[in-house]
Simulated assay, not measured.
Amino acid sequence: FAYSVLDIVLMGRSNHIATFSKPKPKDIEVALQALADLQLQHLAGQDFASLSGGQRQLILIARAIASECRLMLLDEPTSALDLANQDAVLSLLRQLTKKHGLGIIFTTHQPNHAQAIADKTLLINRDFIRFGQTDEILTSENLTALFHLPMIVEQSQYQQQQFSHFVPVYEVLLEGKRDE
């Protein structure tokens, strides 16, 4: 079926709309605000199927926001997004937790995303499980064990802000440099 972007976001309101009822003006207002939060209101009338994968991902996040739930579960919410949109989504998620008390659980393969917004972190694979405060769990040692890949911590400064970020050390980079 061809659904508009607004229709998809309104589907997030299903718990607020009675069975066989139409969305009320309040539902449409909430859906449009969710789109506006992600600066996507200009897509409201477009066919959802015509969007890029990254745009679809953002629309589905808007749908989750429109549900006005107390706990949001997101599976790799930034996986199909370019870097600017990853930043927009992470910033929005942080804002939702701070301003609305929304609980968010999300999966990611990007430890820098967890470091940016998570209070607590669970690292898990078949052989390795760690859980606790993000700043205690996200260490180069734990990430190296988790990913079976050396991970280093880099300290950086930008606009008088100090921060650290994780950098994977890919074998192919080391091999390429050795060949020169």
Rank of each mutant, 00 (worst) to 15 (best):
E171M: 10
R13I: 14
C69Y: 12
L96P: 06
D179R: 12
F147H: 02
H109T: 03
E171Q: 15
A62C: 04
K22R: 10
K98P: 03
Q33M: 14
T107C: 06
D82A: 01
K177F: 14
Q162F: 15
L32D: 13
H113A: 05
A66G: 12
D7V: 06
K98L: 15
D135Q: 08
L6N: 05
F128M: 04
G45S: 10
E171W: 09
Q155Y: 10
A80G: 00
L93T: 03
E154K: 01
L122P: 09
G53C: 00
F1Y: 01
K99Y: 12
A34E: 13
G45L: 06
T78I: 00
T97H: 08
L146P: 04
P25F: 15
S50A: 07
S67C: 12
H42P: 05
A36N: 10
I104Q: 00
A2K: 04
R70A: 13
A31C: 12
K120R: 13
R178Y: 12
V169K: 14
F163C: 05
N142K: 07
K24H: 13
E141F: 05
L38K: 02
E29L: 07
P150T: 14
S79F: 01
L10Y: 09
A84C: 10
L138G: 09
S140A: 12
E76M: 02
L143G: 08
L60N: 09
D87I: 15
G176T: 09
Q162N: 15
D37K: 09
L6S: 07
L73N: 06
A88N: 07
D82M: 01
V30F: 07
L51I: 01
S79R: 02
L143D: 06
L73Q: 05
F48I: 00
S79A: 11
A49D: 07
L73H: 04
H165R: 14
E180R: 12
N142M: 08
K24I: 11
D119C: 13
S52W: 00
A18D: 15
S50V: 02
M151E: 09
D135H: 09
Q95A: 10
E141M: 05
A64H: 11
A36R: 11
L173R: 08
Y158A: 15
F128V: 06
E154Y: 01
Y170C: 02
F147K: 04
L40T: 03
S156L: 10
Q39S: 15
D7M: 03
H42E: 11
A18I: 14
T19V: 15
G176M: 09
N125W: 10
I104F: 02
T97K: 07
A116R: 14
M11I: 06
E154Q: 05
K177Y: 13
L90K: 05
N125L: 10
I129N: 01
M72D: 13
L102V: 11
Y158C: 14
